[in-house]
Write a protein that binds this DNA or RNA. Structure first.
Length: 479
RNA sequence: UCCUCCUUAGCUCAGUUGGUUAGAGCACCUGACUGUUAAUCAGGGUGUCCUAGGUUCAAGUCCUAGAGGAGGAGCCA
């Protein structure tokens, strides 16, 4: 018999029909004459209830069924007399495809800590929380491509191994085929990378932006959505060593167009989740309420679905860095020196406590900050006429902080060249980037959206290690 | 990398000012129950108290070092 997915089965009213389902046991319970098995196949967060009569014939099989076992069940679809579900399956035959020894199987039908499940990442897909996150993650991946496709963007695969060491986004992982126990050296005693696979030093990419710009200056609107690697020793709930980043890059867009796109895209993704993932969002919402039930009312987060709808309905607040500094300088926590870093004046970098104040206390909605001092931002950002600021924009979300960082790019050859010199970036590694400003240069803009940070927002999870299947962080590369 | 906290049964956790044989719930096994909803009820055994030193008559508890984890900070997405 052909397998019916549980998602399909639960929506059917074909009572009396015989079907086959396959899946993994979540719980088994029952009394003397009847056993109830909650079976899940990942097609939905919901389980199908298998009802099995206990008699001398079935007892042997039923005794071997525990949480975690894989079953194939043939049975009749019936209307459930119980109160927890509409449809259930009256078992006619149960095959154990793969047993799970209850003495060894670590997952139980109870609450496990997220830390414990992180150590069991090979099995945590089998929990409600992670199967929900995985389905939402898929929906978001799909929605990203959908959005850009519908808006006339082309997807670009930018390189994962890069020979440029000037991308200006933090520490990089070296990629080499050299024998590390016998590294070739040149006359000066330095590593001789000419003997390496590419004949030069290479790294894993920290951003696809520079290459995406090259494509945008021909195809007008492009985006990348690929893995990104940062060798920073960051130990926080918002950082991964390997993560996925979405980087659109648009010719003929100025900073305002860039912000419009960022806001529209984020709202599209939220709407897509609300339209397509409601079962999972409702589960994740309950999970969050439960997790925070011991917190004081003022420390609890907004209910998940309500929060998503709220952000969807708000225009993001757009302010300049200069205005942000004014607000912060006159704020209570600054005057009372409650900030760890008190804002003294213009030019200071905004710390996460300042961003959180602006987003969570002052405006109480997402905020886009623009026109930062050029000294605290990257070399490729478009310089403003004031000579002090650049057309950068950061989108700040409650709890997560910076979810998007972007800018209009410097399209003037001389200004870009001078900035590269000023910041001591090796000019010879940037010749191809500079050349695009020499031939048919146009205003263009782009941004980077951290996919897992968006997943944090979308699922209400608190730790970025729980929204990616196999997190890579300092000292953790298991699985 | 810095600051703070944590590490006790398979899991979640309690363990008082250092003092007999280290506890509970869940899971597991046995039994009861005509349909349960993380079923319920009764019974059963379960420990490298993270590791290595140290203080002490006596250490799960105190001290030192190390390992791992969490939260916050920096870096950023």
């Amino acid at each position: 018999m052909k397998r019916t997915e549980i998602k399909t089965l639960l929506q059917s009213t074909g009572y009396g029909k015989e079907v086959n389902v396959k899946g993994w046991v979540r719980t088994k319970r029952g009394s003397k004459h009847v056993a109830f098995i909650a079976l899940n196949d990942g097609s939905t967060i919901k389980n199908i209830q298998i009802v099995a009569e206990i008699n001398p014939e079935t007892e042997k099989t039923l005794d071997k069924i525990h949480t975690g076992a894989a079953l194939s069940v043939d049975g009749l679809v019936i209307e459930s007399p119980g109160s927890g579900q509409k449809v259930e399956l009256q078992a006619k035959n149960i095959d154990i495809l793969g047993p799970a020894n209850p003495d060894e199987y670590p997952l139980q039908p109870k609450k496990h800590s997220l830390e414990f499940l992180r150590e069991k990442a090979h099995l945590r897909f089998r929990t409600n929380t992670f199967s929900a996150i995985t389905r939402v993650r898929h929906a978001m991946i799909f929605a990203v491509h959908n959005y850009f496709n519908d808006h006339g963007f082309y997807n670009i695969h930018t390189p994962i191994i890069t020979g440029s060491d000037a991308e200006g986004a933090g520490e990089m992982y070296q990629v080499t085929t050299l024998d590390l126990s016998n590294v070739p050296k040149n006359e000066n005693g330095e590593v001789d990378f000419s003997k390496d696979f590419f004949g030069k030093a290479t790294n894993l990419t920290v951003s696809g932006q520079l290459e995406a710009e090259l494509a945008a200056l021909a195809l007008s609107k492009v985006y990348t959505f690929g893995p990104t690697f940062r060798a920073e020793n960051s130990n926080t709930s918002r950082h991964l060593a390997e993560f996925w980043m979405i980087e659109p890059e648009m010719a003929f867009y100025d900073i305002r167009d860039d912000m419009d796109l960022a806001e529209d895209m984020l709202k599209y993704l939220i709407r897509y989740a609300l339209d397509n993932c409601m079962d999972d969002l409702e589960f994740l919402s309950k999970r969050l309420l439960d997790e925070e039930k011991n917190k004081k009312a003022e420390e609890r987060s907004m209910e998940l679905v309500e929060k998503l709808r709220f952000v969807l309905d708000q225009d993001f607040e757009r302010i300049t860095y200069t205005r942000a500094i004014d607000i912060l300088r006159n704020s209570k926590p600054n005057k009372k020196k409650k900030f760890r870093f008190v804002i003294e004046g213009w030019g200071a970098d905004l710390q996460s406590e300042h961003e959180r104040y602006l987003v969570e206390k002052y405006f109480k909605k997402p905020v886009i900050i623009t026109d930062y001092p050029k000294d605290i931002k990257a070399f490729y950002m478009k310089q403003n006429e004031d000579g002090k600021t650049v057309r950068a924009m950061d989108v700040l979300f409650p709890q997560i902080g910076e979810i998007i960082g972007g800018s209009q790019r410097e399209d003037d050859y001389d200004k870009l060249y001078n900035r590269i010199k000023e910041m001591n970036i090796p000019e010879e590694s940037m010749w191809w980037y500079l050349e695009t400003r020499k031939f048919g240069s146009v205003p263009h803009s782009g941004f980077g959206l951290g996919f897992e940070r968006m997943m944090l927002f979308m699922t209400g999870m608190g730790n970025i290690r729980d929204v990616i299947p196999f997190p890579r962080t300092p000292l953790n590369c298991e699985f």
